[in-house]
Computed example of a mutant assay.
Amino acid sequence: MTSRRERSSRITEDEINDLILKLHPLLQDSSSRCNTKVSTAKILKETCNYLKKLHKEVDDLSERLSQLLASGNVDEDTIRALLRR
């Protein structure tokens, strides 16, 4: 028997579908395909790939910032330029 809390914390299929529909426009490349129907699996795969790309960018920026801080060649403009990439 499932507890009341477990039942209330479960997400329904309709809620999942709604979240997928909200997620699709947020993907970087989806704006060019906004009128075409894309499968849920493809949207989730694109989302995972996009998150991996963002994670790599954060790692690269962190590494670059660490190098700048270690070298002592850091000023406000350098940091701003790094964050604009």
Rank of each mutant, 00 (worst) to 15 (best):
S30E: 15
Q28D: 10
D75K: 02
L19Y: 03
L69P: 05
D14Y: 05
R5G: 08
I79F: 04
A41S: 07
D29G: 12
S66W: 03
E57V: 10
R10P: 02
S32F: 06
T12P: 01
A70G: 04
S8E: 14
M1V: 01
L19I: 01
V38P: 02
K53M: 08
A70M: 08
N73T: 14
C48R: 12
R80Y: 01
L82V: 08
C48T: 10
L83N: 00
D14Q: 10
N17Y: 05
T47L: 12
S71L: 10
D77Y: 02
L19P: 00
T12G: 13
E13Q: 08
C34A: 11
L68E: 02
A41M: 09
K22W: 05
A41T: 09
T78M: 04
I43T: 14
Q67I: 06
Q28G: 04
K56G: 01
T40E: 12
D77V: 05
V74K: 07
R7S: 12
E76W: 05
L54K: 14
S31R: 05
G72W: 11
R5I: 15
C34R: 11
L61D: 06
V38I: 15
T78Q: 09
L23E: 02
L44G: 03
S3N: 07
M1P: 11
R4C: 00
